[in-house]
């Protein structure tokens, strides 16, 4: 399968820059994985902020709310500032550099990937592309006013050239590929 090749390449490249990469066959497994991650980390409902676009349907939200009562699917500056974990969907992924590409024109979708210490990005496996050039062929900047390319977590080497992960952006980037995004 073409996507296996692309996924493997993506995983190798993204992990080499400290991203964590997972792949699940459908949405339910992906949700279960994310919830298990939150439980393991002893996160409370107020510790994470899940920006829902089209990924979650009502029954998914109910399922999540049972485990984390009071979870907020709306993002605000306040909620994103407080959240330790931000969860959002990302539209594209570039295999040869391990990069996520996101139309971050909406303010909420931008801050949810910027402010929390952990960013969990959900991507459809079918949206994996080979390289930057093949992405730019499908896309025009007039349509996305803020296009964000994300390759691994935030990093710096400004003090004594020592690579340190997590400065102003997330210190962990967890990428969850989903083969079947349907219900």
């Amino acid at each position: 399968m073409v996507n296996d090749l692309l996924f493997n390449k993506f995983k190798e490249k993204a992990e080499s820059v400290n991203a964590e990469v997972y792949r699940f066959k459908d949405k339910h497994e992906a949700i279960k994985f994310i919830l298990a991650f939150l439980e393991e980390g002893n996160f409370k409902s107020s510790d994470f902020n899940w920006l829902n676009n089209s990924f979650l349907n009502d029954s998914d939200k109910r399922y999540i709310s049972e485990k984390f009562p009071g979870i907020n699917f709306e993002v605000s500056l306040q909620s994103a500032t407080q959240a330790k974990v931000g969860i959002s969907e990302i539209e594209w992924a570039i295999a040869n550099s391990g990069t996520l590409v996101h139309d971050a024109t909406s303010f909420d979708s931008r801050i949810i990937s910027m402010l929390p210490e952990v960013h969990i990005a959900i991507v459809s496996t079918s949206k994996l592309l080979e390289d930057l050039a093949s992405l730019l062929n499908r896309f025009h900047p007039q349509k996305a006013h803020y296009l964000a390319f994300i390759t691994g977590p935030s990093r710096t080497a400004d003090i004594e050239r020592v690579l340190t992960i997590g400065v102003h952006g997330p210190e962990r980037l967890i990428i969850v590929f989903v083969d079947d995004m349907g219900c």
Binding site: K13, S16, V17, L77, S97, G98, T99, T105, S106, F107, R110, P141, Q142, A144, H145, Y146, L147, A148, F149, I150, T151, G152, P153, S154, R155, A157, G169
Partner: peptide, 21 residues
């Protein structure tokens, strides 16, 4: 910096929404 890719590229085209819309 001898990186294949830096952590972020941002491409901004015109105005984008603020927190208050």
């Amino acid at each position: 910096t001898a990186q294949i890719c830096t952590s972020y590229f941002s491409i901004i085209t015109g105005q984008t929404p603020n927190v208050d819309g």
